[in-house]
């Protein structure tokens, strides 16, 4: 609570419209170690990331533990999510071969979903996917998997067809080849990581600024007067709207990350597409 008071004391709504920190990056860089083990820092984000993995495992475990033919409510929900990834993403996008990639896509979806959920989880309220480490490592995994799948299925032709694309006029081949190479091997992982990262950063910034401003304006209503207090109420309403919107974004970004991973794998194993 001292930190809370600290934060509110830094914000003077008689001077500012919105309680923004001097640098928005301050909202994200929590790199204070809780403890240090042999010089290796265990930070809050570190703990949250491990926790997200454990929660994802626990959800799947408790959802699918009882293999009942007639499922309960929770089992139906988890089975719905798992079945959605299997039918719509793995098999729906990749085709019959998708079953092989289903465990990867499922763990991707569940892990990102829980990691994003921390954005709106009370007392956590920090999307760990807004730290670049998580999106970057997952995008790198997808990158490696789709390249490996391409080589496994097509051999060296996989790269050759990208650099020297068939079915393109010879004069254009170098140009198209370079563009394709860059877009496949560089832009894909980068945009995959940045999409998730940027969405969560934006959501976290909006929620934090709006809800903090609203809270501070309610707490300090005696100093700032009733007119500004009403402004604070408006910020609060807007914050609620964005809170609901963020729920959609959380689901959608987890889905899109999984979907795009599936699409990338599909394009490397089915080239004539």
């Amino acid at each position: 609570m001292e930190q809370l008071i600290l934060a509110t004391s830094e914000c003077d709504l008689t001077q500012q419209t919105v309680c923004a920190p001097a640098d928005v990056k301050e909202l994200f860089e929590y790199r204070i170690p809780i403890i240090e083990i042999a010089g290796f820092p265990i930070t809050r984000t570190f703990v949250l990331i491990i926790l997200a993995g454990l929660i994802a495992v626990a959800l799947m475990y408790f959802g699918l533990r009882r293999k009942r033919a007639v499922p309960g409510r929770f089992q139906t929900a988890i089975e719905g999510l798992v079945g959605f990834v299997k039918d719509e993403v793995a098999i729906g996008i990749i085709g019959p071969d998708g079953v092989k990639y289903f465990p990867y896509l499922l763990s991707l979806f569940m892990f990102i979903l829980i990691a994003n959920m921390f954005e709106i989880t009370p007392f956590v309220n920090f999307p760990i996917t807004s730290r670049m480490a998580l999106p970057a490592s997952l995008a790198a995994l997808t990158w490696m998997i789709f390249i490996a799948a391409g080589f496994k299925r097509q051999g060296f032709r996989y790269v050759a067809d990208i650099i020297w694309p068939p079915g393109v006029p010879t004069a254009l081949k170098p140009l198209v080849g370079v563009i394709e190479f860059v877009s496949t091997f560089l832009v894909r992982p980068f945009s995959l990581a940045v999409r998730l990262f940027a969405n969560m950063v934006a959501g976290h910034v909006m929620l934090t600024l709006l809800l903090t401003t609203a809270f501070v304006s309610i707490v300090t209503i005696g100093e700032i007067g009733i007119t500004k207090g009403l402004f604070g109420f408006a910020w609060w309403l807007l914050g609620l709207a964005i809170f609901l919107f963020e729920i959609v974004v959380i689901l959608l970004q987890a889905y899109i990350f999984t979907l795009l991973s599936a699409v990338y794998i599909e394009t490397s194993i089915n080239p004539a597409h």
Binding site: K25, F28, E29, R31, F40, P41, I42, T43, T45, F46, I49, I50, A52, G53, L54, A56, V57, M60, Y61, L64, V82, P103, Y104, L106, S107, L108, M110, F111, I128, R131, M132, A133, L134, A136, S137, L138, L141, V201
Partner: peptide, 27 residues
């Protein structure tokens, strides 16, 4: 903000590995 922190990369890969092996071997 854009550079991944090493300890978080480590945590992320561990956590994802746990989820992946669980999904693969149990789910």
């Amino acid at each position: 903000l854009l550079l991944p922190a090493p300890e978080e990369l480590f945590a992320g890969l561990i956590a994802f590995a746990i989820v992946f092996f669980f999904a693969w071997k149990w789910v």
